[in-house]
Write a protein that binds this DNA or RNA. Structure first.
Lengths: 157, 157
DNA sequence: CGAATAATGCTATTGATCATAGCAATCAAC
DNA sequence: GTTGATTGCTATGATCAATAGCATTATTCG
């Protein structure tokens, strides 16, 4: 073969087996691929997630979305504004302060494409793994996140 | 109990079971905890990783480190400079252009503390999981990253 | 009812992270 | 020796998340 010999071959990497490091790298790769795919319809991963979330919870308010996604109120503003200015989201006042979010027709169409792209991305990476590893990864991550949540990552706004 | 009812109880989250999303969240939590712990000795996660890496590969050059960590050459400069100005790293020219990196005495002491902190962080999260889940998560992540690497995330500088 | 408290959306600002472009010096190869 | 690649570096811009603070409105409670 005579490959070009990357530094990874030559150097020792003691952190390569660390959980945090592996999570970070894997997350980066998967999110990068998702970003590329979503860029073709002019959306970023966060925006795709918001569309999906609003579609599943019509009438929700952006503070709730922020709490679910771990995004601060202040940072939700431009996100929602961008989606609204694209004609994908609608805000209708429910309170004097809260705005109920819902998808427009175009937003619903976009959400459908987002779901397809996300499903394809999932399938792509789950296909890379042996069926057993994919299931193991998914279930281990699920219980990890559940336990972490219970152990209180309680960060308020 | 009568808990405060978070949005997570009230709203549906269709992306919660997505691999990319779970990876991202888990990574964020683990890295945040690591960041808090390392902040107590005045280091950030990247800096701790670099110390560990240089300790395991004395004489390596920063371009190699950058390639291993997925950090661009231009962004390695201030990282290495900061560690050097703290007296933790030493640069000695090996080439006319390359600088061999090694730990100073203080750097070696810092590396030991970093290793202890990282190990404690690992243990903390692996302890949260049932022994089986922890091992499953680790091995699934390992093979996932290996396969992803083979499938070519080949990004040059 | 009226006052204190909390929640919501928003602005403005900062800092951290990352990417791009380009440059001078040096090494390696032909 | 000339060409091409590598290394460290500067400068700059884009993106993203965190903080502080504000005006408006809900809610709670005396």
């Amino acid at each position: 073969m005579d490959q070009p010999e990357t530094p990874e071959d030559r150097l020792r990497d003691p952190v390569a087996s660390h959980l945090g490091y592996m999570l970070r790298r894997a997350s980066a790769v998967v999110m990068a691929r998702l970003g590329e795919a979503l860029a073709e319809i002019g959306l970023r991963p966060v925006e795709g997630t918001i569309l999906t979330l609003v579609g599943a919870n019509p009438g929700c308010i952006q503070s709730d979305l922020g709490r679910m996604l771990g995004i601060k109120r202040a940072n939700m503003v431009p996100l929602i504004a961008a989606l609204a200015s694209k004609g994908l989201l609608e805000k209708s006042p429910v309170d004097g302060r809260s705005l109920a979010l819902s998808l427009t027709g175009a937003g619903e169409a976009a959400r459908a494409r987002v779901d397809a792209i996300m499903a394809a991305n999932e399938a792509r990476f789950e296909g890379l793994l042996a069926g057993q590893d994919g299931a193991a990864l998914r279930s281990a991550l699920r219980s990890a996140l559940r336990l972490i949540a219970e152990a209180g990552d309680g960060r308020a706004d």
